[in-house]
Design a binder for these strands. Structure first.
Lengths: 219, 219
DNA sequence: ATTTGATCGGGAATTATTCCCGTATGATGC
DNA sequence: GCATCATACGGGAATAATTCCCGATCAAAT
């Protein structure tokens, strides 16, 4: 990376791209700015231009931001990605960082931070929005804890968890999976136990917060 | 409104404001553009500058977009508001329109639509994003239907609904409201009946989708 | 071959929910 | 005032859901 920094902006909101671009162009450290409104073309543009930094939204139609991050990093493990998202929930930050991004900014950040983050990351550093960093510091938070707990579910339990999360009754789940109602009841008890909750409603809300949406078919 | 159109942008994301402003400035029909990042100052700026059109985000910290719309319309019933939101769920559109806005755009709209919408509304028209208009057309959708159903709940039932929606058990609700567990059970049955659902999980999810968050205290 | 983890479900006790019932209260209309 | 109606509350008995403890089965790992 010699000379000016080149940036690839990936966001399905044209308005956001334009706004971000405007700020980037205020800095003389930053040169070319490429844009993409979808994940698929982002990968192509990355290979074509080899930008120093990729600024990316998480919630996009199609394969979504996380999957895009994964694909970019497969192509180039040294790819420098800065997430620019509306989500300030720790779970998103944690996931993104785990996925291998170099920075995380929320969309209502002070514009000056945008430049700071982009140049910092281009220079090989990392950047997490101050407010988020603080949250991350006092880790082991509820969200993360729950994430860990969900991982404790066996595959089958997870399937049942997903169906219950949609508001289905234990009986409906049993019918759909062709098992005894008793089995689902027993599983349900175990699941709630592992997740540290007491009602199926909590289960539904929890799954909802975590954006868990796996589809399960009967065998 | 003679001469150029003046616009007040209300959005807590500086990036979005900048992007939108950039587009507005491309049109020679549009003159002054004022900006605000919060609801409170938006009302002041509106009275100060009397802009022809207010472009507003819905999800903002503080009193929120809907409340801001209400306040603006109290001050000036002819205030022309264009909502510019990430939410494309019909329920938001319906609420906004019911609140009295003149237009609704989603943030990933084609930039050309922004100008079209702003100028159209300034001229006294209305503008709803094409995709949303179509959705609206086939009204009486689930969301709207549910909204109607929720209205059928008695005040007390609604309180209980809100508590159950948080994932609390019937027993916890009973304790909190100082009534018999039996009562809450009976109410719960009635509520599910009125809402056309079968499980408390569905209730929780439904309330969640509708963003129902009333706080209820014991007496 | 044995252990381990996962899945499935029965039996009996417990708990939750339903359905139907009656009471009480406050607002509305005549 | 008095009837009426909607609302809130909750009991009793039947029914359904859930728990807890148990054993069976199977596949993969050691």
């Amino acid at each position: 990376m010699s000379g000016k920094i080149s940036v690839l902006l990936v966001d399905d909101h044209a308005v956001v791209r334009t706004g971000f671009k405007t700020y980037l162009e205020l800095s003389e450290k930053i040169g070319a700015v490429f844009e993409s409104d979808r994940c698929e073309s982002a990968c192509r543009l990355y290979e074509l231009h080899q930008p120093d930094v990729v600024v990316m939204d998480l919630s996009m139609p199609g394969i979504g931001g996380f999957e895009t991050i994964r694909r970019l990093l497969i192509r180039d493990p040294h790819c420098k990605i800065l997430v620019f998202s509306i989500h300030d929930e720790l779970i998103y930050v944690a996931r993104a960082i785990k996925a291998g991004v170099k920075g995380y900014l929320v969309k209502n950040s002070d514009p000056e931070l945008l430049i700071t983050a982009v140049t910092g990351i281009a220079a090989g550093g990392t950047f997490v929005a101050p407010a988020l960093a603080q949250k991350l510091a006092m880790s082991a938070t509820d969200e993360v804890l729950q994430e860990q707990r969900i991982k404790q579910l066996t595959p089958r339990e997870f399937d049942i968890f997903c169906l219950l999360a949609k508001g289905k009754s234990t009986r409906e789940v049993a019918d759909q999976l062709f098992v005894s109602h008793k089995t689902v009841c027993n599983n349900s008890t175990t699941i709630k136990d592992k997740l540290g909750i007491k009602t199926l409603s909590e289960l539904a809300l929890l799954a909802n917060r975590h954006g868990i949406v796996k589809e399960v078919e009967g065998r």
